[in-house]
Design a protein around this nucleic acid. Structure first.
Lengths: 334, 334
DNA sequence: GACTCCGATGTAATCGATTGCCCAACCAGG
DNA sequence: CCTGGTTGGGCAATCGATTACATCGGAGTC
C-alpha cells in the first residue's frame, strides 16, 4: 500500500508540486481554477500529506508536548484536558507523556520530545533536584513552561497555586474548628509542591498554636495506598491528632478509607483535609474538605505563557501563583 | 540558538556523517576508536538528533498512537498507563490523544496521527457508526487495533471484555440477592459497549425473571453527573426499582451520590452496581459492587496484536473477548 | 606472491513537503 | 505600441538523517 504523495497529486492535477503545496496550504495565492483542480485530485487520491516531511522542512510541528508525573492522578488529567482544549482552539495538538514519577524516565521522555521537535513543552517535573539537569537541557532547546511543580535553578516560566496561601486557608479553617494538634501526610520531599505545602503547614500551625507532635509528618507518595498506610499507622499507634492534613486528595481518600476500616469517625474523632479538589473528593465518605485548584486557569495561563515564548519576544520569565480557595465539606464537620 | 546536527558532529569528530550515524545507532560495525571519538564529539556538542528527519528517512517513528474518548475517565487512563508501560518495554513511545467523545474531533485526531506517521494506532472509538469512516480510512493506512469499544464494518483486531458474560455475572448476583426489578443507566446507544451491555442486561433480566419497568432504561453519558441526574429522576418519580445497574462506575458513583442526597439507603432501599472497577469504586459510600476489567491484560494483548501486524504477517483479524469478574462490595449488600 | 574476501569508511541519493528565486503573462497608463 | 508593475506558477534547493553502493586497506588462502 503505497502512500499517496504530493507528487502523485501534482501529476494528476497537471501542475507542479509547488502549486499543490500552495493550493492546499493556502500560503500563496493560486487561481481558483487550479485550486479546484488540485483539491479534486487530492480528494480522489485520498491524499493525506506527510506531517513528518512537512515538519522537517518547516521545522515546526504545531504540537506541544506535555509531561506529567502520572496520568492516574485526576488532578493531572484534569489539567491535561484543559490544556488540550485550549491548544486545540489555537490549532495545536498535544503530545502527552507520563514520567511515572521516575526522573530517569522523565529525562528520557524529555529528550524524546526534543528530538520530536515539539514546538514547546509544558511540564510538571517529578523531582525538585533530580529533574533539574534534564529540564534545563530541554529549556535551552525550546520554550518550556512548568506547571504545578517546578525545579530550582531553571530559567523558565512557572504557573501554579500559592501553596502557602492554601495551607493558610486550611489551617485557619481547622483552628476555627477547634483543632489543637495536626499531622501532615505527603509524599517524600522531592518536589516543590510537597516542600511548600509542608513549610506552609508548619508555619501556619505554629502561628495558630496548633501542635505538630513528633512523628506526625509522614512522607510517602501521592497515592491512595500511601494515605491508607499512613493513617493506619497513626491509628494503630493510638496517636491520632485532632486533624490529618493531606498534601493531595488521593492521600486524603486513603486516610478516610483507613479511618472507616478502623472505625474511627470522621469528623467525629478526627478531621481530614485534602488538596486539589479532584472530582472524587466530593464522593467519598464523608465528602472531603479540600483546596480547590483552578485548573482551567492554570491550563490557560500555561498555554498563554508558552505562546508568548513561541512568538519569540524573550521577556523575563514569570512565576504566576494563583490564589487557591477552600472547599468545605463534611470531613471537617461541614 | 542553532541546533546541533549530525554534520556538526561529523566535522568535529573528523569523520563522515555516515559514520556518525552508524556509530551512534550501532546499525553497522564501527571501529572502537572511531566510535569513541564520535561519542565524545556528540557529547561535547550536546547532540540530540532530529527525530523528524530520522523518521522521514526510515519512514517509521517507533511511536504508537492511542486515541480514547476521554482521559477524565479512570478506566481509560488505567488502560493508557498499562499500554504505555508495555510499549516502553518494547522501546516504543506512546502518543496519546483524547477525542472528547466527539466523532468529528476523533476523525481529526486520526488524520493527524496518520500524518504524523505513527507506526500503529490503538483506539477506543467514540461512536458505533459515526466513527466508522474515519477508523476505516486510518485502518487502511496503518495497523490499527480497537480496544474496549469497536465500530462495525472495519476489518481490524479488537480486544476487550465479554460484555454479555459481565452482565450475566451482575444479574445473577442481583437475582441471588432477591432483586425482582431493575433499572439500567448508561450512555446513549452510540457505541458497542453500551449496546452490548444493555442487550446483556435485558437478556439476563428476562432469563432470571427480573422485571425492567418501562422508563427504567436511562441513556445519557458516561459521567458522574449523568448518574446523579438519572437516579434523582427515578427517586423523585418514586419509581425506584430493587436495583440500579450502571454501565460504568462513574455513572454508578453519581447514582450513589443522588441516593445519599435523597436519603435513600444503599443497599437497604436499592442495590447499585457499576462496571470497570476503577480505583474510586472501592472508596465510595457504600463501596461499589462492580465488574472488574483486566486492564493489564487488555493492554498487553492490544500491544501484542499491534506488533503482530507491525511485524507484517497479515493474519486474519482477531476479536479477543476476555472474561470479566465480579467484585462484590457493600452496594449490593456485601 | 597474487587473489579473495571482509570490515570500515566515504560519497551521494533519498525520504516528501516547502519556499526562495525566477520567468511568463497580463494589465493599465502613457 | 511600449513599459513598469503585478500575479500565478515552475524549478530546484533545502530541512537532517539514513543507507545503497563504491572504495580501500589488510588479513587469509593456496
Amino acid at each position: 500500500m503505497q502512500r499517496v504523495t504530493i507528487r502523485d497529486v501534482a501529476e494528476r492535477a497537471q501542475v507542479s508540486t509547488a502549486t499543490v503545496s500552495r493550493a492546499l496550504s493556502g500560503a500563496k495565492p493560486v487561481s481558483p481554477a487550479v485550486r479546484e483542480q488540485v483539491q479534486r485530485a487530492a480528494d480522489e487520491l485520498g491524499y493525506a500529506g506527510n506531517g513528518i516531511a512537512s515538519a522537517l522542512r518547516r521545522s515546526r510541528t504545531d504540537t506541544v508536548g506535555m509531561l506529567v508525573p502520572s496520568i492516574a492522578n485526576p488532578f493531572f488529567t484534569g489539567l491535561v484536558e484543559h490544556v488540550e482544549h485550549t491548544l486545540q482552539q489555537a490549532g495545536r495538538q498535544l503530545f502527552l507523556c507520563s514520567s511515572r514519577s521516575d526522573p530517569e524516565l522523565e529525562a528520557q521522555r524529555l529528550r524524546s520530545l526534543v528530538a520530536r521537535q515539539v514546538d514547546g513543552i509544558i511540564i510538571s517535573p517529578v523531582h525538585g533536584s533530580l529533574s533539574t539537569p534534564a529540564v534545563q537541557r530541554a529549556a535551552r532547546e525550546l520554550p518550556l513552561v512548568q506547571v504545578d511543580r517546578y525545579v530550582s535553578g531553571v530559567d523558565s516560566d512557572w504557573i501554579g497555586v500559592d501553596d502557602d496561601a492554601a495551607l493558610d486557608l486550611v489551617m485557619t479553617h481547622l483552628a476555627e474548628r477547634g483543632v489543637r494538634s495536626a499531622a501532615f501526610v505527603s509524599s517524600q520531599l522531592t518536589n516543590s509542591s510537597t516542600e511548600l505545602r509542608l513549610a506552609g503547614f508548619r508555619r501556619h500551625a505554629a502561628r495558630l498554636d496548633v501542635a505538630v507532635p513528633a512523628g506526625h509528618v509522614l512522607l510517602g507518595e501521592y497515592s491512595i495506598e500511601w494515605g491508607r498506610q499512613a493513617a493506619a499507622g497513626l491509628i494503630a499507634a493510638g496517636r491520632l491528632p485532632d486533624a490529618v492534613v493531606c498534601a493531595d486528595d488521593l492521600i486524603a481518600l486513603g486516610v478516610l478509607q483507613a479511618c472507616a476500616a478502623a472505625g474511627v469517625a470522621v469528623p467525629g474523632d478526627v478531621l481530614v483535609t485534602g488538596f486539589d479538589d479532584i472530582p472524587y473528593s466530593a464522593l467519598s465518605a464523608p465528602p472531603l474538605t479540600t483546596v480547590h485548584q483552578p485548573q482551567a486557569e492554570i491550563a490557560a495561563e500555561a498555554v498563554r505563557l508558552l505562546s508568548r515564548v513561541l512568538g519569540d519576544e524573550p521577556t523575563a520569565h514569570d512565576r504566576v501563583a494563583l490564589r487557591p480557595s477552600l472547599i468545605v465539606r463534611a470531613s471537617t464537620g461541614g
